[in-house]
Design a binder for these strands. Structure first.
Lengths: 356, 356
DNA sequence: TCGTCCATTTAAAACGTTTTCATCATACGA
DNA sequence: TCGTATGATGAAAACGTTTTAAATGGACGA
C-alpha cells in the first residue's frame, strides 16, 4: 500500500514523462492527493477554500494546464465545435466572417473550433456521418439548408447538437439562425419600384436552398402587389461566375423589353450585372437601378451608388455559436434556439435613406 | 487470473459503456487479446496475415473506429493541424482559399484542421504559446511574416513544427511557402512602363511585413531601371478600407503631377483606386493604367480591363499542408521544406497579352 | 530426449483525467 | 461516553489506446 508515498518523484520539479506538469505534479508539490487537486481546480465546494486557493496558486506557478486528451477520454466530451465549410463560402469571405463570429461566441469557453472543409467531395452528409461516428465534436454548424435537408434529418435522428444557418421545412424543430430573406427581397423590390422601375428582374440563390425560395417569394409578393412586369433569371444564380452573369445580362439586353431594375441576392452578381449593363452603354441610377444584399463592407464602399440591404455574417456566426452552446448544455427550448434576423440598412447609407 | 476470460461480456454485441465499439469489442468477438487486435489494425508484421485479415473484417463489420482521445493520450500526438486565422484574412476569401488548400493536402491523412481565429486580441504570439502549452496540435500554419518574426522565433526555439506563408530574415532556416512578390512588383511596374506610363505610384501591404518589403523592392528596382518618376502611397495600404483609398486617390489627384500608373498589391485597392480616379473623371486605360495582384477569380472577371498578375492561394495552402506533414514526419531538409512560387498570368488574360 | 529458436500471441502497465466510494477527523446532540 | 452527522480528503477504478516485456507452442538441430 505504501507503493507510492506522498512524494516518490524526485523534488517538486515539473516532472512528467513528457515534460508537462500534470495533476500528479501538483499533488506531489502540495502533498495532496490527485483527486483533491482535480476537485480543487474544478472549484468543487467540498474542498476547503484554503486548499482550493493553494492548489490554484501552485497550478499557476508551474504553468499547469489540463491534458485535453485525458479529459476527453474520461468525460466523453470533446470540447470541440465543428463547422462545415463549403465551396461557396470561399468567395467574398463568407466562411471567415461566419467563423470569426463563432470564434467570438466561443471566446472564454473551453471550446475550440475545427473546420471540416467540403471543397472536394460533394456529399457532405458523409462529413456529418464521420463527425458523429468518430465523435469528433460536441456540436456542429453548417449553412445553406434545404427545405427537406437530409443533414438536418440525420443529425436530429442521432440527437447530435447542431445549429444551421437557414431554416428547413421539416416537422421536427431544430436550432437555427436565419436572415429574413423574404423581407430582404420584398424590401429590395419595393425600393426598385419606389425608384420608378417597372420591369424587374431577380438574381437569387441556386434553386433548392431554403433561402433562395424565401427571396423569390419576397420578390414575387412585392411584384404582384405593384402589378409590374417581372422575370427571374433562373439560368444564373449567386454562385455563377461573374463572367457568366455579365454575359447573361448582355444577352438579355439584346432581347426585347429588358429589365430596368434588378434585385440581386449578392454583391458579386450585383457587380457583374453593373459590368454587363455598362457593356451595353447603360448607367446605373439613370437607365436602371439595382438593390442588392450586402455582406461585406468592401464593395459597399466601392460602389456606393448600389443601393444595398445588409446582412451581418459575423453576427450570424456569433449567434450560432451561442445557440449551439445552449443546445449542448441541454436546452431544448425552441425560443432560445431559434433566431430570425431582420434586414438592416448598410453601413454607409445608414442615415441617408433612398433618394431615388 | 481468470478474472476476465475470453468472452466475459455478453454476446458479441457492439458493447461498450458509451455504445461505441472498441478494441475490446473486437477482441471479444474474435477471441483474441486487445493487444493483438491493436497490432492487427496497425498492420504489424508480427501478426499473422490470417489474423490481420480477420480482425480488419470484424472491425469493418461492426463499424469500429479508434477513439482519437485515447490514441492521443497514449501517443502524445494530436493528429491536428492548427491554422492561425487573422483579421485581414476575412476579406476576399483569403482565409477560406488557403484553408481549402490545406484541407486538400490533409485529405486522406489522419490529420484534422483546427482554426484559431485571432480576430479579437492582437497579440497572436499568445495564441501560439497557448497551442504549444496545451499541445493543441502537431503543427501550425500562419501567414504574413515579418522579417524578424517573433512567432517564428518562438516556434523555432520550441522545436514546434510549422510552416509560414511568407519568408523571414532570421538566421535559423524554417519551413515556408512564399510568393515571389519582388518579381510580381517588378513585372507589374514594367508593364506599366510598357504601357507608356512614367509617373508611377505603389499601393502595397502594411509596412513591417516581409512581403510588403519585397513588393516595394521590386517596384523600386523597375522604377530606377527606367528612371521614371514614382511615389509610394504609404499612408494607405492593402488593409485600408476601400473608402479611405478612394479618398486618398482623389486628394492626390487634386495635387500637382498626379500618377498615371498604379501598381496595386491587391484587388480591393485596385478597385478603390479605379473608383477614386473615376470620381476625378479619369478612365482606366485612357488617362491611366493599373496592374494589380489577383487572388480571387471574381474581380478578375468583373474588371477585365485591369491588368493583373495571379497568386494562387489555394495552391499555396496545399503546399503548406504538404510541407507541414513532411516537417512533422521529421524532415529537416530545407530543400523539401521551402518553396518560392512564381507569379502567373491571370486566368482570363492567359493568352491575350498586354495590349496597351 | 532435450534445449533453442522462431513465429505468434498475450498480460499488464501506462498515458492524465474524472468519479465512485470509502476514510478520517472533528464536532455535535444525547 | 458513545454514536452520528459533517466537512474534508484520499484510494482506486475507469475511459480506450499503445507498448514493453513475457509467455506459448511448435519446429528443429543436436
Amino acid at each position: 500500500m505504501a507503493a507510492r508515498s506522498k512524494s516518490v518523484r524526485s523534488g517538486n520539479g515539473p516532472a512528467n514523462s513528457r515534460g508537462k506538469p500534470t495533476l500528479r505534479t501538483i499533488a506531489d508539490i502540495t502533498g495532496l492527493a490527485v483527486t483533491t487537486v482535480s476537485r480543487a481546480l474544478a472549484n468543487a465546494p467540498q474542498i476547503s477554500l484554503e486548499t482550493r486557493n493553494r492548489v490554484r496558486q501552485v497550478a499557476l506557478d508551474i504553468g499547469y494546464s489540463p491534458d485535453r486528451a485525458a479529459q476527453r477520454l474520461k468525460t466523453g466530451r470533446t470540447n470541440v465545435i465543428a463547422v462545415l465549410l463549403e465551396p461557396h463560402e470561399e468567395i467574398l469571405g463568407y466562411g471567415t466572417s461566419v467563423m470569426a463570429g463563432i470564434a467570438k461566441a466561443l471566446q472564454g469557453t473551453s471550446y475550440h473550433l475545427i473546420v471540416m472543409p467540403n471543397f472536394l467531395n460533394a456529399a457532405n452528409i458523409d462529413a456529418i456521418n464521420y463527425i458523429i461516428r468518430n465523435s469528433m465534436a460536441d456540436g456542429l454548424i453548417f449553412s445553406r439548408t434545404e427545405p427537406l435537408d437530409p443533414r438536418v434529418m440525420l443529425l436530429s435522428e442521432n440527437g447530435f447538437p447542431f445549429v444551421t444557418h437557414g431554416r428547413t421545412e421539416l416537422a421536427t424543430a431544430h436550432a437555427f439562425v436565419d436572415y429574413d430573406n423574404f423581407t430582404f427581397a420584398y424590401e429590395a423590390t419595393r425600393r426598385l419600384i419606389a425608384k420608378g422601375r417597372r420591369k424587374l428582374a431577380l438574381i437569387s440563390g441556386p434553386a433548392g436552398y431554403t433561402f433562395a425560395g424565401h427571396i423569390q417569394h419576397g420578390f414575387m409578393t412585392a411584384v404582384r402587389e405593384a402589378g409590374c412586369a417581372y422575370e427571374i433569371l433562373s439560368d444564373i444564380d449567386l454562385d455563377s461566375p461573374a463572367g457568366a452573369i455579365r454575359d447573361r445580362i448582355r444577352r438579355r439586353y439584346a432581347e426585347k423589353d429588358p429589365p430596368d431594375g434588378f434585385a440581386c441576392g449578392g454583391e458579386v452578381c450585383a457587380l457583374a450585372t453593373i459590368t454587363g449593363m455598362t457593356d451595353c452603354g447603360l448607367t446605373l441610377g439613370l437607365e436602371y437601378d439595382i438593390v442588392a444584399k450586402q455582406t461585406s463592407q468592401l464593395l459597399g464602399a466601392i460602389q456606393p451608388q448600389v443601393d444595398t440591404i445588409y446582412e451581418d455574417l459575423t453576427a450570424t456566426g456569433e449567434h450560432m455559436g451561442r445557440i449551439l452552446l445552449r443546445r449542448i448544455a441541454g436546452s431544448t427550448d425552441v425560443n432560445e434556439l431559434q433566431l430570425l434576423l431582420s434586414p438592416e440598412l448598410p453601413f454607409e447609407t445608414q442615415a441617408a435613406g433612398a433618394a431615388g
